[in-house]
Nucleic acid binder design. Sequence first.
DNA 1: TGACAATGAGACATTTACCGTCTTACTGTC
DNA 2: GACAGTAAGACGGTAAATGTCTCATTGTCA
Lengths: 191, 191
Amino acid sequence: MSSAEDRVLDAAKRCCERWGLDKVTIDDIAHDSGVSRATLYRLFPGGKDVLFEALRVRELDEFFTVLRAEVEGAGSFEDLIVRTVVCATNELRADEHLALMLGSEPGETLSQLTVDGLPRIIRVASAYLVPLVEPYLQRASAIRLIDVLARLVISYFLAPSDHLDLGDEQSARAFLRPLISAMTLTVSHPT
Amino acid sequence: MSSAEDRVLDAAKRCCERWGLDKVTIDDIAHDSGVSRATLYRLFPGGKDVLFEALRVRELDEFFTVLRAEVEGAGSFEDLIVRTVVCATNELRADEHLALMLGSEPGETLSQLTVDGLPRIIRVASAYLVPLVEPYLQRASAIRLIDVLARLVISYFLAPSDHLDLGDEQSARAFLRPLISAMTLTVSHPT
DNA sequence: TGACAATGAGACATTTACCGTCTTACTGTC
DNA sequence: GACAGTAAGACGGTAAATGTCTCATTGTCA
């Protein structure tokens, strides 16, 4: 059985998909989750903002949990990076909730992907992925790499290019190879 | 160029699909239709209730306008009835707005199809279809026939049967034939 | 030009909905 | 029987939506 927090967050997600962020009320979420408003405030003191903040955190954690599981055990640095980018891209494309939100509330959703929310995305991405990269790179380089990869994946997800499909392994590999060898060289022969 | 009324009703329909009946506000509809609130109240004095009432009337008229055009010119009584039932069923099944409403607000939508709204549906159905049936039946019989057919079409649309598909001509014809001949007999040899 | 109808913008009082907190009563657990 | 966790809902304050009004603007016709 799932925790009360999770049930509330699930309800928030459902309500959000159904009515949109600014039409949802605390009562909607309380009803949908089968939890009283009092309990909801106990779980998420601060109301809607805190609740949706928590929801975003959970979604982000889920995203990178899945991603890490998919790329763990890559045999080489290049494979690790390519698979990470490809899997992340495809995971984004398969995210129905994200698609709904982008369709119904592009403003807020884009902001979460590119402005307000991006620092957190990169922070969480680092927490999950830097450990996987560290065997091949110095920590600082790993952090920078994850940072730039996250930005690239998001950008190409939001605005696909005719010349590059980061969801396709061959295309992604061809694109990433020079970047990868550049980084490796940088580490091997630091200035 | 469409009339202001139609633009407002179109907006109401869009808003309703997006947010659901009880989350939509007059302002939402006014904005979406590019009309000021004052004008909206001038066009539909009474606000949301009157507006959505008018929308239902329009949808119903459209539905039966399409239906009548599809069945006009049937060569026989049986053909007329069968085509009416088949076309009505398929028109219902193809109605995206209706499908959305049934999905997001089953309670209100079902009520409009089966309880509160049914008398009007039958009234409008009669207005459109009885004239087509009258060449074959007495007026009173025609009215009773349209009444029962409307109920059947709606019921089988909402809850399809394994034994009967009113959207399929053969199935519908087989089902309707006895009913049709019974009515014809009744008229030919009234008690 | 000037009367006129139609509309947009928005002020306004009123009503409704929502919020956040709090109390009370209930339920299961130790 | 104390206790923690919860549902239910009362409560006052705040925000949003409603419905009505006025006024300025626009386009039309005489």
